[in-house]
Write a protein that binds this DNA or RNA. Structure first.
Lengths: 227, 227
DNA sequence: ATTATATTGTGAACGTTTTCACATAAAGGT
DNA sequence: ACCTTTATGTGAAAACGTTCACAATATAAT
């Protein structure tokens, strides 16, 4: 019964999974959720690839890193593969997320349904602005950032989203790291230093517009890309 | 006097610039802006690499695709290189951007300062909600999405940001494409179809949280990555 | 002038990721 | 039972991206 789990563990510990593969896993997961809703029981690598603008070989290779989920001649079982991917991505559970910085971007993220849909629940808000502290955003009362460390620990938060101005982001991150958080998503347009056991991802929205701008200005230069 | 421009053009038309290189150009640009503010006249590939967590060789190779900007023994002229990169990225000008969908994410983006700082000005808002149409967001009156085509053309908009629900995103994109727009940044968590001459980038914020979740759940598996 | 030091620009080596191509195997039709 | 079709899983090849290593060249010190 635990063969699959062993297999996954084995594969994971032996092979190196690339960042691109993991990102595509998210895409597959999303596509499978949709396919399941549409009533499909199985799906081929060809169809999955088409929906996410990839190649069938890529899909098969990506999945093969984690096990053999398909049936030759038939394809992959939609519901089952979705479940498997959820487990692999670690989104077969709820994650308690704290959000720091209830400004422009911050407030938008509080109500971002896609987070909830994937199991990420923002359960705590922090800000340093006295006018915001104590106020209520979608049912969550904003805490004083001065209480960051104690409150993060008290609520056993595992992930933090940072949406503060670039100038103060490093100080905030240092506090977050001190509170023992190991996973941070940063929206501030600045490069943050974290110890090597802390996972940090940066979300830089204007970078994407810059890419578009480059593409327009240099029509000829780069390849069409699958975003 | 136009040697540099010719050189850039030549390099661009001959070589293939990878997506990663372009994304790093954005990082260099940001780092250079900061260095300039800090008063530096020159910067070495070593220092630039350190600031963006890359290798000096990477920095030099990336820049070398576009020309020879540095001086051996000295490094790169900060202000000059910043200007050059702005020109390469196409952000040495203002871009008129329209934003469709004044919901959660949409409203946040209207006031997102980093966009403005890089030359992207949101000058038009659209929504289909009667309660929102006509209302004012940061000085911009929300237009009816029914007038999309005519209004986009009238205001010579060149880029569009889509922040509508996933279920309607494809219809909106079709309209946007019909209006002649060639560059689209999509925040809806769905894969959109566009003709091959339209540049489309997707911003998927929960994908980043999923990556963090994967990283925590599979500590051992993937390499530390530079986000 | 000469030498030491710093640092670029780049071809070649290396490593990683993607794609190819095919053996394998399940399902369905005859 | 056999053949045809469909489609996976995966080594091997190809393509791509990164790093190495060093010649070239500028500056600074003596």
């Amino acid at each position: 019964m635990n063969d699959r789990i062993d297999e996954i563990t084995n594969n994971l510990s032996r092979k190196r999974i690339s960042e691109s593969t993991i990102r595509r896993l998210s895409l597959y997961y999303r596509a499978l959720s949709l396919l399941e809703k549409e009533g499909y029981e199985t799906v081929s690598s060809k169809e999955l690839a088409k929906r996410e603008k990839l190649t069938p070989a890529q899909v098969r290779k990506d999945l093969s890193f984690f096990g053999s989920f398909g049936t030759r001649g038939l394809g992959y079982p939609v519901a089952e593969l979705r479940r498997q991917l959820a487990a692999i991505l670690g989104i077969d559970r709820q994650w308690q997320v704290a959000l720091i910085g209830v400004g422009n971007i911050g407030s938008a993220l509080v109500g971002y349904k896609e987070f909830v849909r994937q199991g990420f629940q923002i359960v705590k808000l922090f800000d340093n602005d006295q006018r915001k502290i104590g106020s209520n955003h979608k049912g969550i009362v904003v805490s004083d950032i001065a209480d960051l460390e104690s409150e993060l620990k008290a609520d056993s938060i595992e992930m933090v989203v940072i949406a503060v101005p670039a100038t103060v982001a490093q100080y905030i991150v240092d506090d977050v790291v001190n509170a023992g958080i190991k996973a941070i998503l940063n929206f501030a347009p600045v490069n943050l230093r974290v110890p090597s056991d802390v996972y940090l991802r940066n979300e830089n929205m204007s970078m994407e517009l810059e890419y578009l701008s480059f593409a327009i200005v240099n029509q000829h230069a780069q390849k069409r890309v699958r975003t």
